[in-house]
């Protein structure tokens, strides 16, 4: 098993030999690559580059959507960093949410996927049930959860009361609102489950068979075969988890409106308010770049570290 190559980030690049002249085959590969990625590149230019440039420019203006934007230099960024305590509150709340919910979601998702990948009866039905929460979205869900968390009549406090604990009024408590929303995010673990399941399916059974011949038990098989083999999927989940958690919005928007006392003021909620409620689209654009840079930095950190823990099967034998 080869590990720790600095370029592990981009697996097949590891084997790309610097060549003065491209062979016919390499040229063909190059051409096919561009052709296949072509629509994506066109799409990027069509729908993404323009809007990105616009958002970049607007961050330096006082754009309010309704009237002409004036260039204001670094005003928005200055205000954001030095004169807006809510910026830091939002950043803190969102970071806590991410730090707690991502590992929990990943561990729970993988755990359930492994259970649901066993040969047991009723698998199809069980898998469907576990995916159910991901199917449902919108107002129905938020109402459902407001009910679950209700102080006096909610299920959670009912269960707690069985063991003699008086539960708090979750959503209206400054201390418990964020933990409540994190708990809620675990309910939707079903969509991650699908990806883990698909990843587990991709592990060649031959590897397990070989290990069993060697007499390997459950844990060694998990640590030495399953985890390394699905590590690209874990990397995907981690990066998507970071992007998703730092852009969490709906729960704060619908269920708590960012309160109480800003306990659930998610960054994107604050951004959305600035953009479409307070008509400060210029400032919102500056906020957008702040969160963009934050996510990007974390992603790069993860990608850098992935060299040490992500295993690409393409490297078993390498390429010519």
């Amino acid at each position: 098993m080869r590990t720790n190559s600095a370029t592990n980030l981009f697996p097949s690049a590891t084997h790309a030999q610097p060549k003065r002249k491209m062979s016919r085959m390499a040229r063909q590969e190059e051409l096919t690559g561009w052709l296949m990625a072509g629509p994506w590149i066109i799409g990027l230019i069509l729908w993404t580059v323009g809007p990105f440039v616009a958002a970049g420019y607007l961050a330096f203006t006082d754009y309010d959507i309704l009237s002409r934007a004036n260039f204001v230099g670094f005003d928005n960024f200055e205000r954001m960093l030095f004169a807006d305590p809510l910026f830091w509150t939002a950043l803190k709340v969102t970071s806590i949410y991410a730090v707690v919910s991502i590992p929990l979601q990943m561990a729970l998702g993988l755990f359930l996927a492994i259970l649901l990948n066993m040969r047991i009866r009723g698998l199809t039905l069980l898998r469907t049930i576990y995916y159910l929460p991901a199917v449902l979205s919108g107002v129905a869900v938020s109402l459902l959860w407001i009910w679950v968390f209700s102080a006096d009549w909610g299920i959670i406090n009912f269960v707690l009361s069985l063991v003699g604990i008086t539960g708090p009024s979750w959503l209206s408590s400054e201390k418990w609102a964020l933990p409540a929303l994190i708990t809620m995010s675990l309910w939707g673990v079903g969509s991650g489950l699908i990806i883990y399941l698909a990843g587990l399916q991709g592990v060649p059974t031959e590897l397990y068979e070989a290990a069993e011949i060697d007499g390997a038990g459950r844990w060694p098989k998990f640590w030495q075969i399953t985890l390394p083999m699905i590590s690209p999927v874990l990397l995907f989940q981690l990066i998507i988890g970071i992007i998703g958690a730092l852009q969490v919005f709906t729960e704060g928007y619908v269920m708590t409106e960012g309160g109480p006392n800003n306990a659930t003021l998610f960054f994107l909620l604050y951004l959305w308010r600035n953009a479409f409620q307070f008509l400060k689209m210029g400032y919102a654009s500056a906020l957008a770049w702040a969160i963009f840079i934050y996510i990007m930095a974390l992603t790069l950190l993860v990608l850098r570290s992935s060299a040490a823990w992500v295993f690409y099967i393409g490297e078993i034998k390498g390429r010519s």
Binding site: L44, T48, G50, P51, F52, A54, A55, L58, I65, I239, I240, I243, Q247, L268, L271, W272, A275, F276, M281, A284, S285, L287, A288, W289, I291, F292, I295, M296, T299
Partner: peptide, 14 residues
């Protein structure tokens, strides 16, 4: 990857 990181709210109008 980067295209997923910019909040959609600010590119809605463009």
């Amino acid at each position: 990857l980067a295209t997923m990181m910019l909040p959609g709210a600010v590119i809605l109008i463009p």
